[in-house]
């Protein structure tokens, strides 16, 4: 690795810090500007004002804003995050250590599906341009983009689970297996494999199919279209003609030559779609009762739980930042012409 490349990576990583900082600061202030008070929102009118005030005092909500702000920043650096303001005041780190792996287990296969199927379909459509397959794929990409997530999820549930009984309906694992399951990392798939718990693994994978396919399909549209457009252009390049003149088969030209040259815009899209992935995860998690961060975030916003919302947004921002850095770094490996 050249020195300039190393410098580039370091600079990129460092750039993530102000990005996360700004985002978290914005959330901090927006949450407090939003009307509604965390204590009242959750407890409703049943709790007397005196009691509510006492709780507020105990939670440190009456301290000056700057104090709260810097306290939170410091906590974040030490990954402390504090406790949720309401509903049990569970330490947020505990919550996140359960929710984050769940969301990752859902979104990773979804993203893989999106990227792989999306890109390959787009390439296929480009190769079969103006033929029925091309039109079919283009229609598919629009339909899948327009369908609301929960609708698709519900349809899958009704058709494949209730009517056909092929897949379980919701949740991460079968109830009885979950009862005896001892997660360690909360990445259930990893834990199941490490423990050699094959029935649990099977249940996990079956439960994973519908939610990740739902989420994967929803995000696929842009991939298909972007790949197709870039591929059409790439397929008209001179080196493709030259390759054809050498007797290289069409399939090879499409998938080995043209496709590799369209990776840069695809990589960029992956980086961008990642943020949408987390948004889509919210609805998917709700439809399939998947215990992930998206669901948690929405609930906490409703409850005006400052701590929890800030923490989750911080984690999201870090994740998006990390992916963004990885994408930038990957450019160097995908396209040899990129120099640092």
């Amino acid at each position: 690795m050249s020195a300039s490349f190393r410098n580039f990576v370091v600079a990129r990583v460092l750039l993530t810090v102000p990005m996360v900082l700004i985002l978290v600061t914005m959330v901090f202030f927006v949450m407090r500007v939003l009307p509604g008070d965390p204590i009242r929102s959750q407890l409703g009118p049943k709790v007397s004002e005196a009691q509510a005030e006492a709780i507020r005092e105990r939670l440190g909500l009456n301290r000056p804003l700057t104090v709260q702000y810097f306290d939170f920043l410091w906590r974040m650096v030490t990954l402390d995050f504090g406790n949720a303001l309401t509903q049990g005041e569970r330490p947020i780190r505990d919550e996140l250590s359960e929710l984050l792996p769940a969301t990752i287990e859902l979104t990773l296969p979804a993203m893989t599906l999106t990227a792989v199927v999306g890109v390959l379909s787009g390439a296929y459509a480009a190769q079969r341009r103006k033929r029925p397959a091309d039109y079919a794929i283009r229609v598919f990409s629009i339909v899948v983009y327009a369908i609301p997530v929960f609708f698709l999820g519900l349809m899958f549930q009704i058709i494949f689970s209730v009517r056909l009984g092929l897949f379980p309906l919701a949740g991460r694992m079968d109830a009885l297996l979950l009862r005896d399951f001892r997660p360690v990392t909360n990445f259930y798939v990893v834990d199941a494999i490490v423990q050699g718990n094959w029935p649990a693994l099977k249940s996990l994978l079956l439960h994973l199919v519908m939610p990740s396919v739902t989420l994967g399909l929803i995000l696929m549209g842009p991939f298909i279209r972007l790949t197709r457009v870039n591929m059409i252009e790439a397929l008209q390049a001179d080196y493709i003609t030259a390759g054809r003149a050498r007797g290289l088969p069409e399939r090879r030209l499409t998938y080995r030559h043209a496709l590799r040259n369209t990776f840069i815009p695809i990589l960029t899209l992956i980086g961008l779609q990642f943020a949408l992935l987390l948004a889509g995860a919210v609805l998917t998690e709700t439809t399939f009762s998947w215990p992930g961060m998206g669901r948690y975030l929405v609930k906490r916003i409703e409850l005006r739980d400052y701590n929890a919302v800030q923490s989750v947004i911080a984690v999201f921002a870090l994740a998006v930042g990390a992916i963004s850095v990885m994408v930038d770094v990957l450019y160097a490996f995908v396209d040899p012409r990129v120099r640092y």
């Binding site: 080196y239 003609t241 390759g243 030559h257 590799r260 040259n261 995908v334």
Partner: peptide
């Protein structure tokens, strides 16, 4: 044009 006739990532 040999530059465009060769695959730039190969």
């Amino acid at each position: 044009d040999p530059l465009t006739s060769l695959n730039p990532v190969q």
